[in-house]
């Protein structure tokens, strides 16, 4: 019966390893909340979320400019990235000949593997001057950050959307071709509609990646804590807000940065819940729900 005890012991150890990620999440929640809540308490929830002034030297902590900044930057990058990624996904799934696939697949993977700090560096050295010359201003802008983010989320959206298109039963396609439809008509009228839940998941996962990105955004967005008026204005993302000021923050300021982390955490959780809802509703399983 010693063996039974051994197996029992092994199973329990495995169980502990398995729940480690849940334990970690609770720890993260506890510590981010623990450090962040005092700031929200002190400033007031409403003033914190909807305050338009962020000025630590005056103890003013309104995080709205950063929320708007994040939304602007991610929104614009989605505007660029979604059509491009979907075209890449359709190309990979339906059109590309196999030798082209053999090049493009690793390309997409490699784009996902480039460090974000290198994207930021490239943006800083190459893109910022170009934007400055073309559109005036400093070159540090929402547009610059969005362009860099477009490339960064392209692999996420492309690979998941490709899986979604690939998972559509072959018969659908055959039926459409059988009716004399062209390839494009088949893609437009049959494949894309059938793959919509998966495509939406892909877009949300890309969105999550864009919201969470720190280094690339911090290096090219200009980081001015003011609500931007146009895409050529500089802006500060939530992530950047934390990364920029944590180095010297003290007291309430320190807590306010953790509170910014709470806002970020919440945005991500909302996205997660939405994807899980889609998975649950539509039975989409691609991507495994990973942002």
């Amino acid at each position: 019966m010693q063996r039974k005890w051994e197996e029992f012991f092994i199973e329990k150890s495995l169980f502990i390893a398995a729940i480690s990620s849940i334990i970690i999440i609770f720890l993260i929640l506890a510590f981010i909340w623990g450090e962040g809540l005092p700031a929200i308490d002190a400033v007031g929830f409403f003033n914190f979320i909807f305050g338009t002034e962020w000025s630590p030297s005056h103890d003013l902590y309104g995080v709205l400019p950063m929320i708007v900044g994040s939304l602007y930057i991610t929104g614009l990058s989605l505007l660029f990235a979604v059509p491009l990624s979907l075209c890449c996904a359709i190309f990979l799934a339906e059109i590309a000949p196999s030798n082209m696939r053999k090049i493009l697949k690793p390309t997409i993977q490699a784009l996902a593997g480039i460090p974000s700090v290198i994207y930021g560096f490239f943006g800083l050295i190459v893109l910022v001057p170009v934007i400055r010359e073309q559109f005036g201003g400093s070159g540090f802008s929402i547009l610059t950050a969005s362009l860099i983010l477009t490339v960064m989320i392209l692999p996420t959206i492309t690979s998941i959307a490709e899986d979604a298109i690939r998972s559509i039963p072959h018969e659908y396609k055959e039926a459409s071709f059988g009716l004399g439809a062209t390839q494009w008509q088949t893609i437009k009228n049959v494949l894309i509609p059938a793959a919509i839940p998966g495509i939406i998941t892909a877009i949300i996962l890309g969105l999550g990646r864009a919201i969470g990105e720190t280094m690339a955004v911090i290096m090219v967005a200009g980081n001015v804590a003011k609500i931007p008026n146009s895409i050529f204005d500089p802006a500060r993302a939530l992530t950047a807000n934390i990364a920029l000021e944590m180095g010297y923050a003290q007291g309430l300021h320190y807590n306010a940065l953790f509170a910014t982390g709470i806002v970020l955490f919440f945005l991500i959780v909302i996205l997660l819940v939405v994807t899980n809802y889609i998975h649950y509703k539509k039975g989409v399983t691609i991507g495994g729900g990973y942002l």
């Binding site: 990620s21 970690i24 999440i25 993260i28 981010i32 999550g208 919201i211 969470g212 990105e213 720190t214 992530t239 934390i242 990364a243 982390g261 970020l264 955490f265 991500i268 959780v269 996205l271 997660l272 899980n276 495994g288 729900g289 990973y290 942002l291």
Partner: peptide, 10 residues
Amino acid sequence: ETLASIPSIV
């Protein structure tokens, strides 16, 4: 999933 989606700055 949640752990994988938490932004690195968090």
